Amino acid sequence: MTEYKLVVVGAGGVGKSALTIQLIQNHFVDEYDPTIEDSYRKQVVIDGETCLLDILDTAGQEEYSAMRDQYMRTGEGFLCVFAINNTKSFEDIHHYREQIKRVKDSEDVPMVLVGNKCDLPSRTVDTKQAQDLARSYGIPFIETSAKTRQGVDDAFYTLVREIRKHKEKMSKDGKKKKKKSKTKCVIM
């Protein structure tokens, strides 16, 4: 069974824990209790493949930012979460993405942009803004509501699919490099 290491990042209060708990335990946590770091595991079937999701729910508070490099190193894919009623959390996505790329030393890291709290009427981040940002990053965008469960499975499952595509691409690139290195030079 394939294991996928997913990391949920975003500013404090955007609903990272609520999304994760909704996926794992099928219930909505409405009281806000700032996370330092929590880890969850769940076995699911995605596109006919049974897999184990190892999900790291991270601290959004700035005082825990020193811990970010460590979990970013171990993560295979990242859910970059903002709240649709919090423009600052949307603007912060850029910083999370840049930090992930720096730590992973790669421009090509599996990510999904997630606009959470889409059940709320007080939207300050337009869907088109988020779609445009995701398009500019070359990553999928999904709106979710941890409260109603809308888009929750889709967000995590899409990230797994992005990781699969990335692994497939990397193995193809690896095979191309191996083929090239088999060419021999004969000096007579």
Rank of each mutant, 00 (worst) to 15 (best):
V125M: 02
D126S: 08
T127V: 12
T127L: 11
K128D: 12
K128Q: 14
K128P: 06
Q129N: 11
Q129D: 14
A130Y: 15
Q131A: 13
Q131W: 04
D132R: 04
D132N: 09
L133P: 01
L133V: 07
A134M: 04
A134N: 05
A134S: 06
A134F: 04
A134L: 03
R135W: 03
R135M: 12
R135Q: 11
R135L: 08
S136M: 08
S136I: 09
S136T: 10
Y137W: 11
I139N: 02
I139V: 06
I142Q: 03
E143V: 03
T144I: 15
T144Q: 05
S145R: 05
S145C: 13
A146S: 08
T148P: 12
R149D: 12
R149S: 07
Q150W: 04
Q150S: 10
G151F: 07
G151V: 11
G151R: 03
G151D: 09
V152P: 05
V152S: 08
V152L: 14
V152C: 10
D153R: 11
D153I: 14
D153P: 07
D154R: 06
A155G: 05
A155L: 11
A155I: 14
A155E: 00
F156W: 07
F156Y: 06
F156D: 00
F156I: 13
Y157W: 10
Y157F: 12
Y157P: 05
T158E: 08
T158M: 14
T158P: 01
T158N: 07
L159S: 00
L159N: 00
L159A: 04
L159D: 00
V160F: 06
V160L: 05
R161L: 01
R161C: 07
E162K: 05
E162H: 03
R164N: 15
R164T: 14
R164L: 09
R164P: 00
K165Y: 02
K165I: 04
H166R: 08
K167Y: 03
E168R: 07
E168W: 02
E168V: 08
K169T: 09
K169S: 11
M170C: 12
M170D: 14
K172V: 12
K172P: 14
K172Q: 14
D173I: 01
D173R: 05
G174S: 13
K175M: 08
K175E: 15
K176H: 14
K176I: 03
K176V: 02
K177L: 14
K178C: 11
K178E: 14
K178Q: 14
K178F: 06
K178V: 14
K180S: 12
S181C: 08
S181H: 09
S181G: 07
S181P: 04
K182W: 01
K182Y: 07
K184S: 15
C185G: 15
C185R: 15
V186L: 11
V186D: 15
V186M: 02
I187V: 14
I187E: 15
I187G: 15
M188W: 10
M188L: 06
M188H: 15
